[in-house]
Amino acid sequence: MTMNSPESLAALFQLATSAQSPAERVATAELMREVGLKCISFNGIPRTINCLNAFRASLPESVGAQLSRTPTRAPNPENITAISGRGQALWDSIYRPFETKLYNKLAESHPDLPVQILHSNYGALLSDPAGRTTGANAGRVLTSIVAVACLRAQTGVGPQVLSHVFGLRKSLEDGSWASDVESEGAVQWLASDAGNEWILTSVDEIVEAISQGTGSNFAPDRASKL
């Protein structure tokens, strides 16, 4: 989505679901939509709209017709406190022991900058809605991987790439990975030097392949390589 290449999502879905059952294909589409939605925090709204619109249009009707149409993130007087609490917990998990220092530093640029990031992004978007029975939860680990991948594919955001790499590692350290679908062994590897390098290298290879296919000069920010 960083490269605003909607057709790539359609190709990825076809590749990922080529051997899946009908039910599994629906579940994969739900998860891809959820990941795409979370990309708003790192890529912005316009690119996410373009990609999610094109992704939905590319799906077979047998899959698209079964996707959830029930919103799960709408705030109301009963859940607003819980949304902020989820956001604070995710923020603290990713940035500890610098969570307060980072919040205050952002506030020096604009007093509402950390407020917007914490409550509208980490709370309402990046943290998974509690008790959701429809849709697909991306989870703590995958959310960090999404952050690393989106930021790696951009330029000039090396510090943010690094902070989210460490945020991925902290999901193992603080146990926040435990409610995710990944096994402990998988999380241990993803949070290791080898796993981190695999994520970064994979993103670089995908960006390069898409760039060649579109004739774009877009290139990843290799200055952030670990």
Results as ranks from 00 to 15, higher is better:
175 G>K: 13
151 L>I: 11
193 D>H: 12
180 D>L: 12
152 R>W: 08
178 A>G: 01
161 V>M: 05
145 I>R: 12
175 G>L: 12
158 G>E: 14
147 A>F: 01
145 I>A: 09
181 V>G: 01
192 S>W: 02
193 D>P: 14
187 V>C: 07
170 K>T: 08
148 V>P: 04
183 S>L: 01
183 S>Q: 02
174 D>R: 01
179 S>W: 08
147 A>H: 04
149 A>F: 09
145 I>D: 08
150 C>V: 10
182 E>I: 02
149 A>E: 12
175 G>Y: 12
191 A>D: 04
153 A>R: 06
161 V>D: 02
194 A>Q: 11
149 A>H: 10
177 W>A: 06
174 D>P: 00
171 S>V: 13
183 S>H: 00
160 Q>G: 12
182 E>F: 12
193 D>T: 13
184 E>Q: 14
152 R>Q: 05
143 T>G: 01
181 V>L: 02
164 H>I: 07
179 S>F: 02
191 A>S: 14
150 C>M: 13
167 G>E: 07
166 F>I: 14
181 V>C: 00
164 H>F: 11
175 G>H: 13
162 L>P: 00
165 V>R: 11
183 S>Y: 03
157 V>Q: 04
163 S>N: 15
181 V>W: 01
161 V>C: 08
160 Q>K: 11
192 S>N: 06
143 T>I: 01
183 S>D: 00
172 L>V: 07
148 V>C: 04
182 E>P: 00
161 V>H: 01
167 G>H: 06
142 L>T: 09
189 W>G: 00
169 R>G: 15
194 A>D: 13
190 L>P: 02
144 S>L: 05
162 L>G: 05
154 Q>T: 09
174 D>Q: 02
174 D>K: 00
153 A>Y: 04
142 L>R: 14
185 G>Q: 08
159 P>I: 05
184 E>N: 10
161 V>N: 03
159 P>R: 03
168 L>Q: 07
164 H>G: 08
189 W>Q: 07
187 V>L: 05
154 Q>D: 14
188 Q>G: 02
174 D>G: 01
162 L>E: 08
163 S>V: 15
183 S>V: 04
157 V>M: 03
167 G>Y: 00
157 V>L: 06
171 S>E: 15
156 G>W: 03
172 L>R: 09
148 V>F: 03
147 A>S: 13
185 G>L: 01
146 V>N: 12
186 A>Q: 15
145 I>S: 10
159 P>E: 02
168 L>K: 09
159 P>N: 09
186 A>V: 09
151 L>M: 13
170 K>I: 00
156 G>I: 03
144 S>A: 11
167 G>A: 07
145 I>K: 10
146 V>M: 04
171 S>M: 15
151 L>E: 08
169 R>N: 10
152 R>F: 00
154 Q>P: 05
145 I>Y: 05
177 W>Q: 08
189 W>T: 03
173 E>N: 10
179 S>L: 11
166 F>C: 07
144 S>C: 15
174 D>I: 01
153 A>K: 00
163 S>M: 15
161 V>L: 02
185 G>W: 03
193 D>A: 15
191 A>H: 02
167 G>C: 09
166 F>Q: 14
165 V>K: 08
165 V>T: 11
178 A>L: 12
149 A>K: 10
165 V>F: 10
176 S>F: 07
191 A>F: 05
149 A>C: 15
